[in-house]
Each structure stands twice: as C-alpha cells, then as structure tokens.
C-alpha cells in the first residue's frame, strides 16, 4: 500500500521506496519503521515519526513509497 494512503497514528514498515539520496540520508530504507504523525488537507505533506524525529514527506513522494502496516491505531 502507498504511504499516502496510510492512517494517522498507525505504524508502517517500508517495503519499496524510490531511489532518492535525500530519503536515504533522512533514514528511510527498506525495512525502516515509522508512525504517521499527521496528514494535511489538500494533499499536503504526510508527517511521519522515525525514532523521535518528525519528517514531512510530500504527498507525491509518499505515493511512491510502498509500506506494510505493522500496527493499526
């Protein structure tokens, strides 16, 4: 499922992600786990929490990141 369709407060694990340098250095790799912290209206960014840092991901990029649900809110 694309990350963009994820739900607030649910936890996901990355299965597949676009090859982006910035995503990698921000700590996103295959297998990275995170929780969705907030979603914005008008297809705004999705804020996810990796460890205790929040990262905002553009909606289109979030549509290209495929995730598996680990825990439902």
């Amino acid at each position: 499922m694309p990350l963009a369709h994820g739900e607030k407060l649910s936890t996901y694990r990355i299965e597949k992600l676009p090859n982006s340098h910035l995503l990698k250095v921000l700590g996103f790799r295959k297998g990275t786990q995170f929780t969705i912290q907030s979603k914005q209206p008008f297809k705004g960014p999705i804020v996810v929490k990796v460890g205790n840092r929040s990262i905002a991901i553009d909606y289109d990029i979030a549509s290209e990141i495929l995730v598996e649900e680990v825990a439902h809110n």
């Binding site: 914005q40 209206p41 008008f42 297809k43 705004g44 960014p45 804020v47 905002a56 553009d58």
Partner: peptide, 13 residues
C-alpha cells in the same frame, strides 16, 4: 518549518 508543512497543500496549488 512547521508553518511550511501546514501551508504546503495550499502553496502547491
């Protein structure tokens, strides 16, 4: 940056 996150949806228009 938090204002940037909140405003992104509108500014993208």
């Amino acid at each position: 940056p938090r204002i940037g996150v909140l405003a992104d949806g509108v500014l993208r228009r």
